[in-house]
Nucleic acid binder design. Structure first.
Lengths: 194, 194
DNA sequence: ATTTTTTCTTAATCTAGTTCAATGTATATA
DNA sequence: TATATACATTGAACTAGATTAAGAAAAAAT
């Protein structure tokens, strides 16, 4: 990603110069993953915080019976990574894999610490990023406990139309907290109704 | 709350002097609510960010059929408030009420802006607060989609034993995404098993 | 191009959790 | 001390969504 592009994106939240955008970028490295490649395996240490450039990262939890439950889809300019693992150097509770061929910018914990130290305005940047993520998570919790699967599916489509095109349906079902079979049923129901 | 106590609490995340703690406190006012009093009504503007001193604040969403769904319980030294309403001056999606007689420190949006401006280390403080809250919300989403109601109830008890003592069971049921009747059934099942 | 693997659909059966309605029990307030 | 009000329990009937198993379709890989 070019410094100009980064600057433009970050300016949604903080006012930074082109030089600062370059300094920011210099702390990252670009990595690429093929479709379905695992980026972080649960139980391993998550050593980077990721910014998705292209493609999609899916974060998921694997339960005691081996079932996968999707926590997050991250597309262009979304952040991803296991925060407790990254921050406290503990094994990651989640796995992360690429959906479609994916290009990432990754920053290590030492470089993130350096970023906060050398460019304190990034405390503000991430304060806003986390605050917005928190608000989105609050909304999702309420949707999960207050609405039916069909309503959640419609709200999801509305909110993340790009994601629906990129991601296999079984993962969308998992994100919604239902089985792929039941999502299939919902979709039929909806198409019959129209 | 005394400046010393505040200093001690904030020092979990940032290094602040007693003077800074006093400056911080000066931006807040203390308010008290009786048990069951509504602090913020959904549809109204949430004009403050709240720090619970004593008692408990419950944030909840009221759906189209008038059912209440609990988003958060906040006890001593937890933050609460409707962030989108506070930040973007839009009507609040949630209501907030006191559970038990409750004492709060509240800061207005203008004072919060001033705090960030005059004491930039509070960007860091809230970055960490929101980051931790985000992690907790991620965990809750996974628990909701990956575990049964009984498992969620046991995990809740484990994680928030103080809350279980303070809060009526029907609200805990709501937090867990189940009906009070079913929580009652779960509790009977558990006590029979022991 | 063909084969293998992954993803999606359909249908029958089953179950965790809901709904409804009644009864019981604390806890406030007069 | 009585009386209202909020809260908790129980059980019977019901339903949204899970499970299992099979086949169809699409996408990768050879």
């Amino acid at each position: 990603m070019s410094p100009e592009e980064i600057q433009k994106n970050l300016r949604r939240y903080i006012n930074i110069s082109l030089e600062e955008a370059e300094q920011f970028l210099s702390l990252f490295e670009t990595v690429r993953y093929k479709n379905r490649k695992v980026v972080v395996e649960s139980g391993d240490y998550c050593r980077y915080f990721f910014l998705v450039e292209e493609g999609c990262l899916m974060t998921y939890y694997t339960d005691g019976n081996g079932f996968e439950h999707v926590l997050q889809f991250a597309t262009h300019m979304w952040w991803s990574g296991d925060l407790p693992s990254l921050m406290n150097n503990v094994p990651s509770a989640y796995s992360i894999k690429a959906i479609g061929d994916t290009s990432l910018l990754q920053i290590s914990k030492p470089n993130l610490d350096r970023l906060y130290r050398e460019l304190p305005k990034f405390e503000r940047y991430y304060r806003i990023i986390f605050q917005n993520a928190l608000v989105a998570h609050q909304r999702r919790i309420i949707q999960n406990i207050a609405y039916t699967a069909e309503e959640r599916y419609l709200q999801f489509r509305e909110a993340y139309p790009q994601v629906e095109l990129l991601v296999p349906q079984k993962y969308i079902a998992s994100y919604l907290g239902i089985t792929p079979e039941f999502l299939s049923k919902i979709r039929r129901r909806l198409s019959n109704r129209k």
